[in-house]
Nucleic acid binder design. Structure first.
Lengths: 233, 233
DNA sequence: GTCATCATGTAAGCCGTTACATGATTGC
DNA sequence: GCAATCATGTAACGGCTTACATGATGAC
């Protein structure tokens, strides 16, 4: 799961480990405070497997370290200017960028089966956060899988709730859990609806049909429609 | 956390590992499918530390294996009758019961600090499921700690939501998360309110005051008011 | 010159999982 | 007898955490 998050961030822009962590915390919200003891080994692993490549920030790469944009960006800009003035063989900051292999892995992870475990919410949230990189059909499938999952949960919750002899607190817990699940399902229904309308619109829009009967085709429709403002090397 | 769940179940009734798992699944809902690879080692650990004691089901103990009550109970009853007829030195089914030490540990875990991590919901749910074993003041404290936690989360979520340039899906995710948190807080407010009223009622009720200014007293008020229908040995 | 922050890593450990191995009981 | 379920355990591994260790950079 962490791999997916890392690749997702690098998909849009190259950056170094420390900033990956910051983004995970400030933008995604998931992985609230991923620890370096997790993050750096994950990056090394991804590098060894060829999914990402690294450029030392003082290295021969001509890329001028274009970065964040926000306040973090300003600071990085200052630093870059300074280090440019000082120059020399500095080697802090390893800048990671995603490779072709990495992009393939990313798509594979993104479309792959969700783990049914306890953190299914996190897993789904993460996927949804990167859903813009999915083909419309795969995106819809993701939403519908999640809906089915929640429906199943709702069923077992209702059984538990109908069960006799629960004390006040447990009962309240189960009832609240049921309500939350219903709320989630309603939300998903809205998302699914929006997706369907978007697809219908694009189908009447003169564009090539995005409605593939074969769901195993990840490249139909508008996949990869992330605006890429990065003048990537 | 698993220790807490186990002790909580054993607090009310002695039972064997397999049934602990069943109850965790069917009644609590948390730890949906805890694996034996987790459960049995945990039981061994608790036994070694003296928090639980074990009686082999075919052993010298005179306890006639009174069990569940529901359908599981009927089956167990059949089996008990059968094994009573066959007798002999059977030694499957290790029946665990909680010790004095275990009860102390249970209360300590129940009142102890919640982990702030990703599964805070599970942690809180588990505690709430056993909240009837807490002193009213400790119970209220649990609810209010949780409320504070959610309020903090809501604040950071709102910051994230107000942030610009999130794509449609991420934005929807953040907004939904915000709503869910608000829903949770409203629920907690109802629970807290109910607690306060209960405490006020018991205070005017002639009973000894449950409103201790010292929150470190776990035995004031109606703690341990679980009906104990079990003719425990 | 020192403190905070940025930045990268390693080691140990916790808590859980899956997969494997074993055996009793009961229904058919 | 054979399969399903009940029942207990071990081994290997996964993913993440905390704590530790190091060093560059920049602010004051």
């Amino acid at each position: 799961m962490l791999d997916l998050a890392i690749l997702g961030l690098l998909f849009e822009q190259e950056m170094h480990g420390y900033e990956i962590r910051r983004r995970l915390r400030d933008e995604l919200g998931l992985f609230a405070n991923i620890s370096f003891g997790s993050l750096y080994p994950a990056l090394s692993r991804l590098e060894r497997s060829g999914a990402v490549a690294v450029t030392e920030s003082g290295g021969t790469s001509s890329a001028p370290l274009l970065s964040t944009g926000s306040l973090g960006g300003e600071r990085a800009g200052l630093r870059a200017r300074r280090s440019g003035a000082t120059l020399g063989t500095k080697r802090s900051r390893k800048v990671y960028r995603i490779t072709g292999q990495g992009r393939a892995l990313f798509e594979q992870l993104l479309e792959g089966e969700e783990p049914a475990g306890a953190d299914d919410a996190r897993s789904f949230g993460l996927r949804l956060a990167f859903a813009r990189h999915l083909a419309p059909s795969a995106r819809l499938a993701l939403l519908e899988r999640r809906r089915a999952q929640l429906t199943r949960r709702l069923a077992t919750d209702l059984v538990r709730a109908s069960g006799d002899r629960l004390d006040v607190y447990t009962r309240s817990l189960v009832e609240h859990s049921t309500e939350s699940t219903e709320h989630d399902i309603a939300w998903l229904d809205r998302l699914i609806d929006a997706e369907r309308q978007k697809q219908a619109a694009s189908r009447t829009d003169g564009a090539r049909s995005a409605d593939s009967t074969d769901p195993s085709d990840p490249h139909s429709g508008d996949a990869m429609t992330s605006s890429s403002p990065t003048g990537a090397s």
